[in-house]
């Protein structure tokens, strides 16, 4: 017994070390965004309140570029509203209230903390479930996609950026209409990669890539980026494409959270398919 006691006393720091590392591994295992745990929720609340008070100061530095982006977006939207068009053929399309059903609505939010220099980057927004932000909602900036909400607390939301190794987004080439998957290889935050775009239809440098609308979080046609360079992978028959993001993720300030009114219905539909697949 005495020997055991002496042994413990002599090597207590090894046991302490192992205990603390075990605790760390436990914390790391909580990071999975499939389920929100109490520990990470508390952590988000703490960092959120500090970041939001810090943001009151730092947001002034981005005012000019944020304004610029918003003006550009206004310009684009102004070109789209009905009053900018003249009806050429009368009486073919009539627009009544019952024809159009609203599918997407947007919640405005501010980015209060962001990183671009890690392999897996996150944003924190100043709106949480008390403002209607929910898990799995898409987030877009005035000029492009940003990411997907992975977690909400009462006043804050944590967003998985497209600059994350688990981020996969279905995108489309506006010219050729072919679709592919947007990923990020972790190298430079202004460049993203598109895979799974068939090389049977030729793409060009400078083609615009937008969201396809196949993923239920984003509406169709949200800008993503322009093709910078591409190579044909002869083995798979798909392109390896590098694109320049339209959004500068390092200067992100104002974003919109996308609310899809039909998401539940779509999810139910997909769920039916998934369960029959598994049988």
């Amino acid at each position: 017994m005495n020997n055991l006691w002496r042994f413990l006393k002599r090597y207590y720091h090894v046991f302490l070390f192992l205990f603390l590392e075990g605790l760390s591994v436990y914390f790391i295992s909580l990071n999975s965004y499939r389920q929100g745990s109490y520990v990470t929720t508390v952590a988000n609340n703490v960092s959120g309140s500090v970041y939001s008070s810090l943001d009151n100061i730092s947001s002034y530095f981005y005012l000019r570029s944020a304004n610029n982006d918003l003006v550009q977006e206004n310009l684009r939207l102004k070109k789209m509203v009905e009053s900018s068009y003249v009806k050429v053929i009368n009486g073919i399309h009539t627009k009544s209230d019952t024809v159009y059903k609203q599918m997407y609505s947007y919640i405005d939010a501010r980015v209060i903390s962001k990183t671009v220099n890690k392999r897996n980057n996150f944003f924190m927004l100043n709106k949480g479930y008390s403002s209607g932000v929910e898990k799995d909602m898409g987030v877009i900036a005035p000029n492009g996609v940003v990411g997907v909400v992975i977690k909400t607390t009462e006043n804050f939301a944590l967003v998985m950026s497209v600059l994350h190794q688990d981020s996969k987004l279905n995108v489309r080439n506006t010219r050729t209409k072919t679709t592919g998957t947007l990923i990020w290889n972790g190298k430079y935050y202004a460049t993203g990669q598109v895979i799974d775009m068939p090389s049977s239809i030729a793409v060009k440098k400078g083609d615009t890539i937008v969201t396809s609308g196949f993923s239920r979080n984003f509406p169709e046609g949200v800008p993503v980026g322009k093709i910078k360079k591409f190579t044909k992978d002869s083995g798979t028959g798909f392109y390896n494409i590098d694109l320049n993001f339209f959004t500068d993720y390092n200067k992100l300030e104002y974003v919109y959270v996308v609310k899809n009114f039909f998401k539940m219905e779509q999810d139910r539909l997909m769920q039916g398919i998934d369960t029959t697949d598994n049988k």
Partner: peptide, 19 residues
């Protein structure tokens, strides 16, 4: 860690360094 949205990673590395 609390401020970097990924819990536990800094703690693990720091404990290792301290050891």
């Amino acid at each position: 860690d609390i401020f970097s949205s990924q819990m536990g990673i800094n703690a693990f590395a720091c404990t290792l360094v301290a050891f």
